[in-house]
Design a protein around this nucleic acid. Structure first.
Length: 371
DNA sequence: TCTGGGGTCCTAGGACCC
DNA sequence: TCTGGGGTCCTAGGACCC
């Protein structure tokens, strides 16, 4: 059986901020901002006050009036993420990045000589954790199991700096089965209440269910989720970095607006940002989508697919505005944005691609900016 | 001063073609 | 003159995750 390790950077953004400003150490710190923003990540001290990611800033201040709010520096987080995972890769050559702050590693060979001695394995993993901490000043927690799902549940089990083994059915059933169903990766805030309504409140209850109600609540996801709850699932750590499929930029306005021209200007700005990003990455698109969220938090998306692939800001803006004109009805808008889908490398496109002259010139260069 | 921003995957239905 | 079946593409939205 393969051994899969999941590594999760604990309160990653907050850690980065504390590392570069040690006076924040031991204090309730949150990364987040904007007039109508939410907490992106917060320190464990802030969590003691009940603050958590996704919480509106106004609520965070209510829970913890002294919270130190820091606007995010995502370039820096991305840079440190790369440094961290480069360090991981030196120890585990086969890793699969799952997000900016977590990855899976194939640890089968790493433990090959001691795979029957959990104590020795634990010590070896603890050494890795400390080595990574010394090297990057970043704390991580780790989970070890036979599938990616098991490893993921393990790294979440104890934070920060936790190490959790889920290698035997006993470990799995004593540690994971008692957890609330909402703690299961893959069960979100829409599905958890449905399962609770049919009497399934823990992961163990899902694992052993024979309930028709549960089958109905989960629909086509029933089989694999019950499998996961029983420790089944994929153990394939895929090392190739996957090509991104979409790129988006949206903005929550400081105040709701019905101003047609203002909304158009925001959309153009979002379209330009998206075009800049895909050009930087050497990608082209043929589907443009706009998103509008109204004052009731009702969100609509509309998209259009066209013949020719493009990376032109003008073309993307043109389509975004065309869609907007066709369906905006004057309701107060709190968020608008543009995304592009069907992203591909130009070389993968058989049909002729329309690149503007400027953008074609910028293609090999550093700056994708035109006009 | 309720509810960010950036993603992924999936589903269902309609249009269209043979 | 009453209506198949299969396949693909496109669209809109749901759910989830960090």
């Amino acid at each position: 059986m393969r051994l899969v390790l999941h590594i999760d950077l604990n309160a990653f953004f907050a850690q980065v901020e504390i590392n570069r400003n040690p006076s924040l150490k031991g204090k309730p710190v949150a990364v987040g901002g904007g007039v109508r923003g939410v907490v992106s990540t917060c320190s464990y001290e802030a969590r003691h006050f009940g603050v958590h990611s996704g919480m509106p800033l106004s609520d965070a201040y209510k829970h913890c009036p002294d919270i130190i709010m820091i606007p995010g520096d995502y370039h820096e987080y991305s840079r440190q993420s790369h440094l961290f995972f480069d360090a991981v890769r030196e120890i585990f050559p086969r890793i699969q990045k799952a997000s900016i702050d977590e990855c899976y590693a194939d640890a089968t060979e790493f433990f090959q000589d001691i795979s029957d001695d959990e104590e020795a394995m634990y010590e070896r993993l603890f050494d890795v954790q400390m080595k990574l901490l010394r090297r990057t000043s970043l704390k991580c927690s780790m989970g070890l199991g036979h599938t990616k799902f098991m490893a993921k549940m393990g790294s979440d089990y104890k934070k920060p700096l936790g190490i959790t083994f889920l290698l035997t059915p006993q470990e799995w059933q004593t540690k994971i089965w008692p957890l609330a169903i909402g703690k299961m990766y893959g069960i979100g805030e829409m599905t958890a209440p449905k399962l609770e309504a049919v009497g399934i409140t823990t992961i163990g209850e899902l694992a052993t269910t024979a309930s028709e109600g549960a089958r109905k609540a989960l629909g086509s996801n029933f089989d694999y989720l019950v499998g996961w709850a029983n420790g089944l699932g994929s153990d394939v750590v895929s090392t190739e970095s996957s090509q991104r499929k979409s790129c988006s930029n949206d903005v929550t306005l400081n105040q709701d607006t019905t101003d047609y021209d203002e909304l158009r200007q925001w959309l153009v700005q979002c379209a330009e940002d998206v075009a800049r990003q895909i050009r930087r990455e050497g990608l082209v698109t043929r589907t443009v989508c706009i998103k509008l969220r109204d004052n009731n938090f009702y969100t609509e998306t509309k998209r259009e697919t066209f013949e020719e692939y493009t990376d032109s800001a003008e073309t993307i803006s043109f389509h975004a505005l065309k869609i907007f004109d066709a369906f905006y009805r004057g309701q107060p808008i709190r968020l608008c944005g543009v995304s592009v889908e069907d992203l591909v490398k130009p070389s993968a496109v058989k049909k002729n691609i329309q690149l503007t002259l400027n953008e074609a010139l910028a293609d090999g260069g550093d700056s994708g900016e035109t006009k």
